[in-house]
Amino acid sequence: MAITGFLRGRSTRFFDGGVKILTGLHLLTSQEEPDTSCFVKRLLLFFLIAAPVVALLAFGLTRDARELPSTMVGKKAPSFALKSLEGKTVTLDSLLGKKILVNFWATWCGPCYQEHPVLKAVRKKYPNKDLEILGVVYQDNEKNVREYLKENGAPFTVLFDPDNKTGIDYGVGGVPETFFIDQRGIIREKHAGILTQPYVEFILSRLSKP
């Protein structure tokens, strides 16, 4: 009875009761004089139910879903041995003692192209003995890389990472992504997206402090 009444659009006591308890809204629009204590009770119930839902949605919907947490920060940087463009094998261990900036990039990646000048400026500003910049190639081939560097210059030691092995070891989800590793080999910061020079300089200045 109640269900069919509801389906036909007629309000029944059962249906009305449910909505009334849940919203208390009928009291705001009702023609009759509402019983105030009942009104307050229902309003309270309404907020008790609505407030947590609104709070949860506000928290969930205002966050950037694409931003991933930096779980690697504070951990020891995973070691690697990768082939450079010159055919030399470069290991992380051999570079310890310097600040290391590991930049994952690709020639097909637009934001990487935009941050290329930033890396060049950083390379110019810091001496080689203090800072190592590594450009780990992400899903790209040697021919593209050579052409790209001939055109745009190379601010970093280019390393090839077959099968994304090192990328996955660092938790890379896309390019560009940059890791700042301190002199003891601890990852101190991770940045996903285009680098700016002030940001890089700020992070590098923090690496010199223990």
């Binding site: 879903a65 991933l68 899903q139 099968d163 994304n164 092995k165 990328g167 996955i168 989800g173 896309g174």
Partner: peptide, 23 residues
Amino acid sequence: CPVCRGIPIAESPSELAQNMMKQ
């Protein structure tokens, strides 16, 4: 899959997911 976000790496055709499968 870190690229496609909504599906597991077992079903993703992206290169990263394939490499993660390999891993």
